[in-house]
Design a protein around this nucleic acid. Structure first.
Length: 513
DNA sequence: TTCCGACAGTGGGGTCGCAAT
DNA sequence: ATTGCGACCCCACTATCGGAA
């Protein structure tokens, strides 16, 4: 198949809001792929590259697109050709690799017309924006193969990816799907949590009784052991074994030879309290000098689930059984602190204690729920605590996609009594309804102190907005050395003037305390 | 007919590795 | 030595479609 055909499918999928029509068009395209194109075609139609990102980002792509000839030349690109080129691009390394990537990219673009260029660019950036990603495509695979969507999804979660499942389903039907099972050493999509406002709401939603566990502010890990072979995966199923020797040692020392465990890796201070997430990432994100850094900045694993333990696969077993199996496989100090209760007061106290010890919050879990790989199900509910500040809008950036034409991303500042000015603490685009976006666009245009056609518009610092956030973190980027984590707008405070806004001193107090 | 689960989109800050400067 | 880019860790929130109730 030609790249141009897939680009046209993607365009048509993006053009219709109806999910069923998207599914029909995607299913039709999947059915037209040649057998050896099915995995890569499915990957692209889900907005992914089969081998992951290739080392080309917005800057490189922009430069290449500007330099590309206005018209396509040569024969149209085939799916196989483009796949091969992208794999070559991903594989280059060492000095001159930037130029080598660029040459390959230039060659691709030269043979691509505008629709193909748009499709390629979106794929490379991971920003397909056609209103269909893996979730919708799973339905399309099911439709194309004539198989139940639930079985396709299940296989994709156990495989940790949809493309191989698409290939198997289209080529071999139900028998192909049946081959996908949990295997020790191969990662599965982790189960995710929904959010609850507080523990009372969480307990109610879970039917009264639940297991409450500390929510640690670290990095998710899925640890596999098969005898001496240990592999550890991140939330996105990247192999991070080399980054976490402590976890490897822990698994090897366990009394059971076959384990698949779900947990969190986090850096702790000497007193056992958690380091900020940034500090954990100094270890978890590292590939070089891990062994040298490990003694001075150790990572500690806390597990909260067992997918394989006690010689059995436990995905379908209830949570309380999986926890019991985990407890037999891993010592208590390597498990997440946990309380099973139906008493709201006890649950609240557990949350308060976790927060007082510097943890992020708690996760409430249904005791009878299975492990729903890849699902953000209602069986796990996270409860955190937000702070709020009244901050001043210093500037705004024009939105993209469905926010085109709206001033969307707000620059937020705290009042600085010392200078009489404002100290920027970060940006946010979250929390606004469409009505708020329209309103703030009007207001900010009237307050603009710079040209409205610029990418970002500075404004007179007069608009006060109540912003919720999870915490203050040290910042190498912002002038006050502090930044908000997960900032989102709660509401505008038209009753407040900028001189009523919170001060940088208040923010420093929050950071220190 | 209304409700709600699942999904996609819209971007945020920080850290590391690495090539280019 | 510094800078900029890209990948990936954490993520909140709203709008929408279409099946469930």
């Amino acid at each position: 198949m030609l790249l141009a055909e897939l680009a046209e499918v993607s365009r048509a999928v993006a053009a219709t809001p109806a999910r069923l029509e998207k599914i029909a068009r995607l299913a039709d395209a999947l059915g037209r792929l040649a057998p050896d194109e099915r995995a890569v075609g499915a990957s692209w139609l889900a907005g992914d590259l089969p081998g992951g990102r290739v080392g080309i980002g917005a800057a490189t792509l922009r430069a290449a697109l500007e330099a590309a000839p206005p018209e396509r030349s040569g024969p149209g690109l085939t799916v196989a050709e483009v796949d091969a080129a992208l794999r070559r691009i991903a594989a280059v390394a060492g000095p001159g690799s930037g130029a080598a990537r660029r040459r390959e990219l230039d060659a691709l673009l030269a043979r691509a017309g505008n629709p193909e260029r748009r499709f390629l660019a979106a794929l490379v950036l991971g920003e397909l924006r056609q209103g269909a990603l893996e979730g919708v495509l799973a339905d399309a695979v099911a439709k194309a193969a004539g198989l139940p969507a639930a079985e396709v999804r299940r296989a994709a979660m156990l495989a940790g990816a949809l493309p191989p499942v698409a290939e198997a389903a289209l080529s071999e039907g139900a028998a192909g799907l049946a081959r996908f099972r949990l295997r020790v050493g191969e990662p599965v999509s982790p189960m995710l949590a929904q959010t609850a406002a507080d523990v009372d709401e969480a307990l109610r939603a879970l039917g009264g009784e639940a297991a409450l566990e500390w929510k640690l502010d670290g990095a998710r890990i899925q640890a596999h052991r098969d005898g001496e072979a240990v592999r550890v995966f991140s939330r996105s199923l990247r192999d991070v074994t080399a980054a976490v020797p402590e976890v490897v040692a822990l698994l090897r020392a366990a009394p059971e030879p076959r384990l698949v465990l779900d947990g969190e890796a986090i850096a702790l201070r000497a007193d056992g309290t958690p380091e900020p997430f940034q500090v954990t990432m100094r270890r978890f994100g590292r590939k070089l000098d891990v062994e040298r850094l490990a003694p001075e900045l150790p990572l500690t694993a806390f597990f909260f689930d067992a997918l394989v333990a006690g010689g059995a696969e436990l995905l379908a077993r209830p949570e309380r059984e999986r926890w019991a199996a985990l407890a037999r496989a891993i010592p208590a100090e390597r498990r997440v602190p946990r309380l099973v209760t139906r008493d709201p007061a006890e649950a609240r106290a557990f949350l308060e204690d976790a927060l007082a010890r510097g943890q992020e919050g708690v996760v409430a879990k249904a005791l009878d729920a299975p492990y729903e790989a890849g699902r953000r199900g209602a069986a796990w509910l996270k409860v955190k605590r937000a702070h709020t500040l009244d901050l001043v809008v210093l500037a705004a950036e024009w939105g993209s996609g469905r926010r085109r034409g709206w001033l969307s991303n707000l620059h937020l500042g705290a009042r600085d009594p010392a200078s009489g000015g404002f100290v920027m603490l970060g940006k946010t685009f979250k929390g606004m309804t469409d009505a708020m976006l329209a309103w703030q666009t009007d207001r900010l245009k009237a307050l603009a102190t710079g040209p409205l056609d610029a990418w970002q518009v500075p404004v007179r610092p007069e608009l006060v907005v109540e912003v919720a956030f999870d915490g203050i973190q040290s910042s190498p980027r912002y002038p006050g050395g502090l930044a908000l984590r997960f900032a989102r707008v709660k509401r505008y405070r038209e009753d407040k003037r900028p001189e009523d806004a919170d001060t940088i001193e208040t923010v420093r107090g929050l950071y220190g305390g």
